[in-house]
Design a protein around this nucleic acid. Sequence first.
DNA 1: TGTCAACACGAAAACGTTTTCGCTGAGAAT
DNA 2: ATTCTCAGCGAAAACGTTTTCGTGTTGACA
Lengths: 357, 357
Amino acid sequence: MKRKITLKQIAKELDVSISTVSKALSGSKEISEDTTQKIQAFAKLYNYRPNNIALSLKNRKTKTIGIIIPEIVHHFFSTVIRGIELVANKRGYNVIVGLSNESFTKEIINMEMLAGGSIDGFILSISKETLLKQDYHHFNATINQGMPIVLFDRVVNEVDCDKVIVDDFRGALKAVKKLLSTGCKNIALITTMDYVSVGRLRTQGYIEALEDAKINADANLILKIEDSLDAEGDLDVLENEIEKFFKNNKKIDGIFAVNELYAVTAMKVARKLGFKIPEDIQVIGFTDGVLSKHATPSLTTVSQHGQKMGEQAADLLIDRLELEEEESLDYIEETARNEYFKTVVIETELIERDSTK
Amino acid sequence: MKRKITLKQIAKELDVSISTVSKALSGSKEISEDTTQKIQAFAKLYNYRPNNIALSLKNRKTKTIGIIIPEIVHHFFSTVIRGIELVANKRGYNVIVGLSNESFTKEIINMEMLAGGSIDGFILSISKETLLKQDYHHFNATINQGMPIVLFDRVVNEVDCDKVIVDDFRGALKAVKKLLSTGCKNIALITTMDYVSVGRLRTQGYIEALEDAKINADANLILKIEDSLDAEGDLDVLENEIEKFFKNNKKIDGIFAVNELYAVTAMKVARKLGFKIPEDIQVIGFTDGVLSKHATPSLTTVSQHGQKMGEQAADLLIDRLELEEEESLDYIEETARNEYFKTVVIETELIERDSTK
DNA sequence: TGTCAACACGAAAACGTTTTCGCTGAGAAT
DNA sequence: ATTCTCAGCGAAAACGTTTTCGTGTTGACA
């Protein structure tokens, strides 16, 4: 097991200088064809590869993107990563992931770990705890240190940076309008607590769709679930909660749920209570994951196009990184900063399956 | 937006040498208390953080682990990553992921990208295409360059390194024995093509369980699915295939599927054909993912404990990395190499749900 | 024969650290 | 007064690159 070979070793072995080796390998015409040949052959023989770390140090950039997401065992976030990785690799970047596990402190620790020179920029989605605390100083701090950030999905106005979001409001609107158009009169909403912005926006979409149809939103038809429940264990609790909800609201004929877990669980409970889907009750979920596709009946959902979000986020970040090379950010007037950052909105898509008519 | 502050800048600002700053910050008692105070205060004020890249270059290690997996939008692999990340972070390491996308060349490209100094060691699961080609030179090459590898799940004898696997054989055995013990007489197997080792092992477990019960495996009861089908689109094709299979084998009363997608799809088709689960047909899948848990009826599965696999793999790798610091690998006799590497076997667990009696 | 350009190559700086060693000055010991 | 000791600090090397700026050796040309 030999250590990786370096320019210095090649130089010594061939009795030339390091500079010569470096130039020969990069095909500089400063070096004679003879020596170039010799050096390149030798390098190939010993399978020479330049040391990325040394290059990073020299160039002051790592060609690596840091991703921080709340959770990786999650279909949506995985698709986003896939998207990021796709364009990052295509553009010559690597991807390094940190998991905040929905925790404020782990988010900070991870960011500090990566911000210490390991990466050129961040792509991240804010943890629930951070959203709850509304403490975003670490984001602004790293931005001020000159490291660009792209926020996706769970974004927040307090941070000035590029953002990629899905139109949660219109997605919900579309979904509920669909339910209305297929004859639903009493549409229930199953949602999370309000502090996650996306949940709030979806709720607004639900309400607006109803109002457009001259229906007053009935508070009894809105079920807010404690977040702790979607985690792992307490599936039973979730089911009981929903069952109680159904029993208190016998006239429900449509359900819009802000994620697919709530949606399929609702279907499960509904069937257990003797309802037929979609005949008696129609269901639409948000987030087109593996559950939606393979549930029985398969679930009509609002797709967020996670992969596309990831691709967009990566392009946005890399564009900025490579733009900064030429123009320094200092030129930008403080007042122009706001317009300087883009927010890309990915259109949602209603994927119709068998849980709706 | 100021660039990150360095030792040099602090030194200049405080009119001391770089060495003094470095020592003061690390609390060396070589430096007087006065200067130490002053320097530390200044550093804190300007939020100094040592540059990881420079440290990596100096120490010749990056404190980063490279992961390469075939696919990230996949419950099992995500849980493995979560496990790796968990112990990696706990032990002061970062995690950088590459996706091979089941492609041989992308696997190689990714490995070369990372092997160029970016990481200290690999944790990876082999892509299908690589398994098909049976070309493992790139693994052995990087190992020979002194970079340790830990293989998980999809492993192969030809590569000499630490491995973490699940006992696929016994997992399958347990599953089929369970079906037998609850009265199944004609148990079908739905599996993939043979070249993925885990599929082969699971098939062997199925066969052995039958033989133990003095039943001859019936080739007609084994359905081999083209891999391309589990990807994204062709869910219909998969369903048709399974439906045809059922119609050709009307006496089937039990199904063992080598992954949860096949299992839930089988359930779906069975129900469509009028069978009741688990009364008429019992079903067990492999891989305890989100589908199994939320299918109706919920699916009995063999859990692979992905997270535990990840944790073990990370521990194995980091142990080796930190061991190599002291003893050089050169001391190891060539003959001792074989016993030098560990293979950790994670026990499977049969999680009983509603698709079995 | 002397001058100059072109060619082929090397020296050194730089990126940001840590660490070894050497240096300086002041007080203690003789 | 002279030597010794030690505290407190700085210089420099090293990690592996790339790149700028020399520098020496040719050959051609006047």
